[in-house]
Amino acid sequence: MALLFCLCGPALADPLDVSQSPPGASACLGCHGATETELPSLKNLSAVEIEAGMDAFRTGAREATLMNRIAKGFTPEETRAIAQWLATQGRAK
């Protein structure tokens, strides 16, 4: 168990390779990280769910404290690319 913890600890804290990340994607990680905090990790959401959530924040169909202000800065195409990249990095399903 202790060994498992040791092996997992540094891996969890390791940064992602952002060299192929689409515009804006790496900024998401500033709030939505590898682990749950008061803010959700995106790991339990699928790329489709992230995209739908962002679309709803953008249009105002879904209320938010802050994400509506950020979602409006991205086109649907940019949002899709971000969601898909997060999934390829294991930060979304």
Partner: peptide
């Protein structure tokens, strides 16, 4: 309740970003 939520989110942001930056 929205103000309280944002205070909580501030804490969450701090945990996430410091983990990303300093491990």
């Amino acid at each position: 309740s929205v103000r309280a939520a944002e205070a909580q989110y501030a804490e969450g942001w701090y945990k996430t970003i410091t983990q990303e930056v300093f491990g």
